[in-house]
Amino acid sequence: MIVFPNAKINIGLHITERRPDGYHNLETVFYPLMIKDALEVIESKELNFQSSGIPIPGNSSGNLCLKAYHLIKRDFDIPPVSIHLHKHIPIGAGLGGGSADAAFFLKLMNETFNLSLNEDDMMNYVRQLGADCAFFIKNKPVYALEKGDRFEPVKLDLSAYHIVLVMPSVHVSTAEAYGGIKPAAPQVSVRELIQQPINEWKHTITNDFEKHIFEAYPVIRLIKEALYNAGALYASMSGSGASVFGIFNEMPDLSVLEADNQVFYNL
């Protein structure tokens, strides 16, 4: 069986405080984005994992799909499976691609082997794998808080707009991104700010990572400026970067960006 894990973007992102466990509390809005990987799982004589498409750095034994398999294997007598992941969602982009793969893998295993897990059960499993993994179980716009793994529903529908994503050829590590942050509670929550007209977001909704990431990687700042120059109603870095998205009324011409960056249109 094959599923197609999709990405997400962050609309607004505030790091509110450092936690005693070394993580950070935050607030943001997660919104599904239709860049997709392809994930196939077939019952097999032995557990194995292979990937194609965008090269995945590191040892494949650390892939979140395999970690999800071992996690549910503790509680269920599931057989070995062969996993094939075709990677299309950019890596190191702030799009949650690896988290999506893990969540969709768990949903697929639940369906294939009749594990009878409900959505809350699956969310509790994948929370153990990463802060934003649980979002992809329901895969609907949410206001996320705490570590980014607790959610409240929000009414947000961007289907009438064109979303464009630009991925530069740079990689921003999570450690580097958080290293430049000074946590502070926002004066107004992102949950309230997204209720404003989208053309107001430019002046009110911010991503705390942008200031120091833009200083370290000016190309990311230039991409955001190019999106606004092309007519974006709102543009922002997603998560801790390095991707930048723009929301448009009309499909823009971004050919000037295509020589040095990946550009994904009409998402």
Rank of each mutant, 00 (worst) to 15 (best):
L66D: 06
I72E: 12
Y265L: 11
P218D: 07
G58K: 10
L254N: 12
L193E: 06
E40Q: 14
A102C: 12
N59E: 14
S173M: 05
S60P: 15
R221V: 01
E215A: 14
S238D: 05
Q262A: 11
A93N: 01
F49T: 03
H88E: 08
L115E: 11
I89V: 05
L227G: 06
A232N: 09
N266D: 15
L71T: 12
L193G: 01
A7E: 05
M1R: 02
F30A: 01
A259V: 02
I194W: 03
S44A: 15
A259P: 06
V81L: 09
H171E: 09
T204H: 12
Q50G: 10
S116G: 04
S51I: 08
N266S: 11
D37G: 01
T174A: 08
A185P: 01
I35H: 10
Q50V: 09
T206P: 01
L257K: 06
E146R: 14
L64M: 10
F136D: 04
M237S: 06
I89L: 00
G12D: 01
K36V: 07
L233N: 10
G148W: 00
K140D: 05
H14C: 08
L227D: 04
K202D: 12
P80Q: 12
L85C: 12
I89M: 04
K211W: 13
A144L: 07
G12F: 10
A235R: 01
L158S: 02
E146N: 15
N110Y: 11
V154Q: 00
S60T: 06
W201H: 03
E192R: 05
Y125S: 04
A235M: 10
Y234K: 07
S51E: 15
Y125H: 11
V166P: 06
F248S: 04
P32F: 02
S116N: 15
E200N: 05
K155M: 08
R74C: 05
M251H: 04
Y228W: 15
G96K: 02
L257W: 01
L95G: 00
P32Y: 06
N207K: 13
